[in-house]
Design a protein around this nucleic acid. Structure first.
Length: 572
DNA sequence: GCCGTTTTCGGCCCGACTGTTTTCAGTCG
């Protein structure tokens, strides 16, 4: 059972407990454990079976027992009992914004509501407003929420970072250009460079905050907006992306930025730790519980320093051990864009790319790279974009001729070869031996078992001509789940054979993920930052590969393509 | 339900907003 599936089950149980009226801290224990498990790289099922799962923070004996029952029987007894008691439709109703567990429980107890259909009937009949504390406005919200629930049963769509970042930058630019703006910055999950984001968080400081809020509501990308207040404004944009702008006075810029950068889990942990020292942290400052004095800071560095931490980069703020590391001065020196010397995965018109290798080379040189690997698809690739061995050998010769011209950029002759379902590759070894750089990737047969997928990948890892594994999980963010894979086993094999793993920077992939990239480093596996560019513009995806590496605690030393090409420790 | 160089029991982050209320509960991020 995957960690994601275990986390889903615990999250469901937390909702059930909530609807059942359980103590909020008990509910919190379940949601926290779900998050911890979702963020853990190696198999939690194995940890549970080995009796080591209580080593994870926030998981004690009770949760261990429940996780063990889940992986052994496919069900948590407590969840099954609660489902008997509470109609499943109540969980759906709970997803309507503004309708929390307390309200759901009252709708069930007092109006016999069991699901969305009942609720719609009750709301249309005006029964909801008859309950004490509920009124016509809430009834209206419920009906709107039910419509949305029908239209989007999965909830508000999370969007990949590339859809958010340009809009966020444009809006922050507009804010900065306004005379009443002191400083403005992107915050939230966009600033943390998360894989996907639900909305855009912006912060700004101003002496006339309300004027600034009113100004941004008039931006051409804004389709509608809430009320402009001293504290901020909520916007909806033409591209269906929600934007929260938070405002404060200039002297608290650091507090505001720290608070709204999050993550929620990072901030919660930060505030809990501060309370132990009598300090109360909020977006307005750091308050001393004894003296009542509230300190405001202009920079985040000062906020962290006041609380006893070294500065924590936004990409690390996910409650994955960064606070402890910052207290002990053990944060990693994260890789930076300027340290990347080349890109080792791109496509050309030879397979399914849009530009020739000469055009790709020119673009790579523009980016200041020293080398670029041309890695078109291989012989068995579908959609007519396959490259037969004979044609590949011709391209190798063309690339050698290109290099002989003595330009500044060195091209590497490579290929992205398919790993067949049986673990073999789709070029003969003597063809692969002609190449400078071989990436092996899985493009077909995703629905095999974990054991099969793992054996298949290990076969490729151990192949003497393979240098690197491409987009290892096969996930497409918001569209396709990763296939099952035993990461401990593949990283062990890769560390043994000296095979690297890429972080694919395509914003739909970000694969390896941050969690698995970090895990790979712990196993001693070298990482390559690649774009998988299918056009010259695609080379810009390096920014996302770097973001994932930084979220995965990686430094330049962990990454092969921060070194000159001739220093690459090739596996062949 | 978890956790402890203040605690093995009694704590467990902070504030804004909304809709319903004359002082607040519930929800959200």
């Amino acid at each position: 059972m995957t960690n994601a599936r275990i986390a889903d089950a615990l999250e469901e149980l937390s909702v059930l407990y909530q609807l059942d009226g359980a103590d909020r801290y008990r509910v919190l224990a379940y949601t926290n454990s779900a998050r911890t498990i979702r963020n853990h790289g190696s198999s939690v099922e194995e940890m549970a079976r080995a009796g080591t799962v209580t080593e994870l923070p926030g998981i004690g004996e009770t949760l261990e027992e429940k996780i063990l029952a889940l992986v052994e029987t496919g069900e948590i007894p407590a969840a099954a009992e609660l489902k008997e008691k509470l109609p499943s439709g109540l969980i759906e109703i709970n997803r309507i914004p503004g309708v929390g567990p307390k309200t759901v429980r009252r709708l069930h107890d007092e109006l016999d509501v069991t699901g969305p259909e009942d609720l719609r009937a009750a709301a249309e009949a005006g029964q909801v407003r008859s309950l004490k504390g509920l009124g016509p406005k809430i009834e209206e919200n419920i009906l709107e929420g039910l419509d949305r629930l029908e239209a989007e049963p999965e909830g508000p769509e999370r969007k990949t970072l590339d859809r958010m970042l340009p809009l966020a930058e444009e809006l922050v630019g507009a804010l900065r250009g306004h005379p009443d703006c002191d400083r403005a910055e992107i915050a939230g999950s966009v600033r943390r460079m998360a894989d996907t984001c639900e909305d855009i968080d912006l912060i700004a400081t101003s002496h006339s905050p309300k004027k600034l809020a009113t100004f941004i509501a008039g931006h051409e990308s804004v389709s509608s907006s809430g009320n402009a207040s001293e504290n901020g404004i909520r916007l909806e944009t033409q591209s269906d992306i929600g934007v929260d702008l938070r405002l404060a006075r200039p002297e608290a810029f650091g507090n505001l930025l720290q608070h709204f950068t999050g993550s929620a889990a990072h901030n919660t942990r930060l505030r809990e730790a501060a309370v132990a020292e009598g300090l109360h942290v909020s977006e307005h400052g750091i308050k001393d519980g004894k003296t009542g004095e509230n300190d405001r800071f202009r920079t985040e560095e000062e906020v962290y320093e006041r609380l006893g931490y070294s500065y924590i980069e936004p990409t690390l703020r996910e409650d994955r051990g960064e606070l402890e590391a910052a207290r002990e001065g053990k944060l990693p020196d994260l890789v930076e864009r300027r340290q990347v010397r080349g890109d080792l995965h791109c496509h050309t018109t030879l397979s399914d790319g849009r530009n020739t290798f000469e055009e790709m080379a020119a673009a790579a040189q523009e980016l200041g790279y020293e080398y670029l690997a041309i890695t078109d698809h291989s012989a068995s690739h579908g959609f007519g974009d396959n490259v037969e061995a004979g044609r590949l050998l011709e391209q190798i010769e063309e690339i050698r001729q290109f290099n002989e011209k003595g330009g500044e950029l060195r091209l590497l002759a490579g290929s992205e070869v398919n790993i067949h379902p049986d673990g073999t590759l789709d070029y003969e070894d003597d063809v692969l031996a002609e190449l400078d750089w071989v990436i092996a990737s899985i493009h077909t047969g995703f629905s095999r078992s974990e054991a099969t997928m793992t054996a298949r990948m290990i076969a490729a890892i151990e192949h003497p001509e393979v240098d690197c594994i491409g987009h290892a999980s096969g996930r497409l963010l918001t569209r396709r789940d990763p296939y099952p894979l035993d990461y401990e086993a593949v990283f062990e094999a890769a560390a043994r054979s000296g095979t690297a793993f890429e972080i694919n920077g395509n914003p739909k992939r970000r694969d390896l993920s941050d969690v698995h990239a970090r895990m790979a480093r712990e196993y001693g596996v070298k990482i390559v930052l690649n774009t998988d560019a299918h056009s010259t513009a695609g080379l810009e995806y390096m920014a996302y590969a770097i973001a994932t590496a930084r979220r995965g605690w990686l430094g330049a030393d962990d990454i092969l393509n921060t070194a000159p090409w001739w220093k690459q420790p090739l596996s062949k």
